[in-house]
Structures are given as structure tokens and as C-alpha cells.
Design a protein around this nucleic acid. Structure first.
Lengths: 226, 226
DNA sequence: TTGCATCTTGACCATTTGGTCAAATCCCTC
DNA sequence: GAGGGATTTGACCAAATGGTCAAGATGCAA
């Protein structure tokens, strides 16, 4: 249970993969995401993943050599998507709109891929047995780069002096909370991010709070959807 | 795997419990917290909990009739402590100092009881199978009460108009993040809340950001420890 | 159509694990 | 210090589960 490199059959995406293989791998990864995010690694069973993917356990093990291999592949599959929003933070943009965009995107992710969010949270909470190396290299590099962007905004007098790391942590924490703790939020509000109104209200509330928190005014609502 | 009421032998705390019983129950609950928080419910094994508590599996099952009973009891044991800080939010206090106190206490909890934090997070992320009823009743009542307190502060012109629920969610999310994602935080900063300096810096950063976020100035550092 | 590689599966196995039980052993009261 | 309940444990069991394997089904190129 260490490392995240070697998948199985034809390591990478659709390379030398037959039509059937591509279809089944996709089905398996979808089912695995659902199962792992709901039950965690230990609680998930290969049999249930196979059933949800519409095939026998044996057949699933033809595509992925072990439960851990499925888990690894699932994690790798979502990781790129999951960290993408941070990459869009533009150094030459205005801090207010850049941060607002980032927050909006992160909440959008929580709304659209709550399972991915929970899977990721689970992995990290268990000590990140699979992805620690990635956190320590790729993620660290990315975060340092974006911290510098924020530092530059501060130097330029464009925003209040804050520790960029804590700002980033706060954004991560807050936005992911709405996905990971959706049950609790539903218990307390009766709604969650799947409700369009609640989604909007959440973006509004979080953005306002954080932007004000770093001494910025809310930018005009930019309608650029996505 | 539903409900959280019926523990085992002598349901409540130290009631009609022998010295031995009290000692062993404590040992078991401590070991269980450690194990469940690290591995989750499914990943935890009764055998390991017993070993960590220094007794045989059979003996452990003499005190708790099943794995689920141990889990339930562990959860109940931490829940009260975990939700306590919110109760201290005083209606007649100043919003700035009250919120700052609350944030400070929550971070203190994350630092001192990271295992409890992770256990709680795990439970909620899996859909809160055990504690959903509590969230929907006790917690809901408490949150509604404290939301009203915040509403009153707003009506009194003491703070910016914000949705109290989202403010509370943000505080929960941020403060617990430092416990639940400590591995990630350590990967990115090299430190975590167990480092006194990082702890202080975190309290400072989070408090400043949130208080400014709701239009409040930081209160003078009040030395009242605890 | 034929032949071969890909794909699929049921039968099977070893291990793990939650839980039971009867037999000790310990502790405390009388 | 004897009796009886509380405590402790090893042996044992049944179910769940990850994984193997050989045989069969299917898809496809020639």
C-alpha cells in the first residue's frame, strides 16, 4: 500500500486499449469512486464494485490486479481534476476576481464531484498512504508557486498582508466542507450544494467572507459560466 | 449500525461500576479512539483495539458486546466534548471577542484531540450512520440557538450582515481542517498544530481572516488561558 | 469459416475477522 | 479462607473477502 505509479494493463489512458477495455475500465473506475468514497478503502469490497460496474469480480480482477490497484487508479484519476482549479490562479489578474474565481470553481467541484472530494479527504485523513509523495512534490511546488503570486499581490499593495498558506488552507477547508460534510449540512439546513439556490448562496457567503477577510471587495458578478 | 443509545454494561459513566470495570472501559475507549480514527470503522479490528488496550479480544468483548458497540460508545464519548465550545458563545458578549474565543477554542480542540476530530469527520463523511439523529436534533437546536445570537448581533449593528449558518460552517471547516488534514499540512509546511508556534500562527491567521470577513476588528489578545 | 487472442466467469482457496463458549483465574465479602 | 460472582482467556466457529485458475464464450482478422 505505497506509491501511486504502476497501474495495470496499459498504464495510461486510452493508448493501446481495445474498445471493450476502455469501456470496462471506465465503468470500473466510476463504480470504484462511488464505492470507495462511500465506504473508504477498507470498507469497500471488490465484489460490490464489480456488481456496480456490471461484471463479475473475476472479470474486474482481469482489468485491475488487486483492490489496491483499483484504489490507486481511482485516486490518480481524480487527483488531476481535483487540483486543477488552483492552477488557474493568474499572477497578472486582480486578486479579488482571481480569488473569487478560485473559490467559485472549488465550490463548483464540491457540487459536481462530491464523491471525489470525499475520496480525497478519506485518503488524506488516513495519512495519505498513496498520495503522500505527490503532496510533497507536485502539490508542494504548485502551492509554493501560488503562494508567491499572493505574496506579490500583497507587495503591490493590492490586498491585506496575510499568510498565503493559511489563506489557501482556508479556501480548501471551507469549499470542501460543503461536499465532505454534506450530510451534516443537510441535517442543519435541509439543503446541500445539489440545490441550485443553496449553491449560489454558498458561493456568495464564502466568497464575501474570504474576500473581506483579506481586505478585498467583491468584484462584479462576472457571468462567465463554467 | 443505527442509533447511538444503548451502550453496554452499565450504560452510563461511572455509576455502579467496579474499579476494574472503570479502568478497563477507559482503556478500551482510548484504544478504540486511536484505532477508529486511524483506520475508520471498517478498517479497525477488534483484535488491535484489544491489544492496544492490553487485553485479549475475548476480554474486550466482555465489556462491549460488539465492534459496533465500541464504536458507538467511542463516538458518544467524544461528541459532548467536541460540541462544547459552541455552547460557550455568549449572547451578551461582544461579537469580536466571542467569535475569537470560539475559534481559538476550536483550534485548541483540533490540536489536543486530533483523533477525535478525525473520528467525527469520518463518521459524518460516511453518512453519519450513528449520529445522524443527534445532528438532526441536539446539534440542530444548538446551531439554531447560536445562529439567533449572531442574528441579534447583526440587528444591533455590531457586525456585518452575514448568514450565521455559513459563518458557523466556515469556522468548523477551517478549524477542523488543521486536524483532519494535518498530513497534508505537514507535507506543505513542514509543521502542524503540535508545533506551538504554528499553532499560534494558525489561530492568528484564521481569527483575523474570519473576523475581518464579518467586518470585525481583532479584539485585544485576552490572556485568559484555557 | 477458422484460428487465435481477448474477454468472462464459476468454482475454489486461504486468510482475516467478528463473535461464542466453557473453562480457568481473580477478587472480594462473609 | 471458603464461596461465589466478576474477570480473563484460549480454542473454536462461521461469514466475509481478496485473489487464483482453468475452462468456456466472444470478437475479430485473414
Amino acid at each position: 500500500m505505497t506509491g501511486l505509479s504502476g497501474q495495470d494493463t496499459a498504464s495510461l489512458k486510452p493508448g493501446g486499449m481495445s474498445r471493450i477495455q476502455e469501456k470496462n475500465r471506465t465503468l470500473i473506475l466510476e463504480a470504484a469512486l462511488s464505492e470507495f468514497s462511500r465506504k473508504g478503502f477498507s470498507g469497500a469490497t471488490v465484489e460490490r464494485i464489480a456488481a456496480e460496474a456490471g461484471m463479475s469480480k473475476s472479470n474486474l480482477l482481469y482489468y485491475f490486479s488487486s483492490k489496491e490497484a483499483i484504489y490507486s487508479a481511482t485516486l490518480a484519476h481524480i487527483l488531476e481534476v481535483w487540483l486543477a482549479p488552483l492552477k488557474t490562479l493568474k499572477p497578472d489578474g486582480e486578486p479579488a476576481s482571481e480569488l473569487a474565481d478560485y473559490i467559485r470553481q472549488k465550490i463548483e467541484m464540491s457540487a459536481r464531484f462530491p464523491e471525489a472530494s470525499r475520496l480525497f479527504a478519506n485518503e488524506v485523513m488516513q495519512g495519505a498512504p498513496q498520495i503522500l509523495p505527490i503532496l510533497e512534490t507536485d502539490l508542494k511546488r504548485l502551492v509554493e508557486e501560488k503562494s508567491q503570486v499572493i505574496e506579490n499581490w500583497i507587495s503591490a499593495g493590492k490586498m491585506r498582508k496575510v499568510n498565503p498558506l493559511h489563506l489557501i488552507f482556508t479556501i480548501w477547508a471551507t469549499t470542501q466542507h460543503y461536499a465532505d460534510f454534506s450530510v451534516q449540512i443537510r441535517a442543519l439546513t435541509g439543503k446541500d450544494l445539489s440545490d441550485p439556490e443553496f449553491h449560489m448562496e454558498t458561493v456568495q457567503a464564502v466568497t464575501t467572507l474570504i474576500l473581506n477577510g483579506v481586505g478585498l471587495a467583491l468584484p462584479d458578478a462576472n457571468d462567465q459560466s463554467q
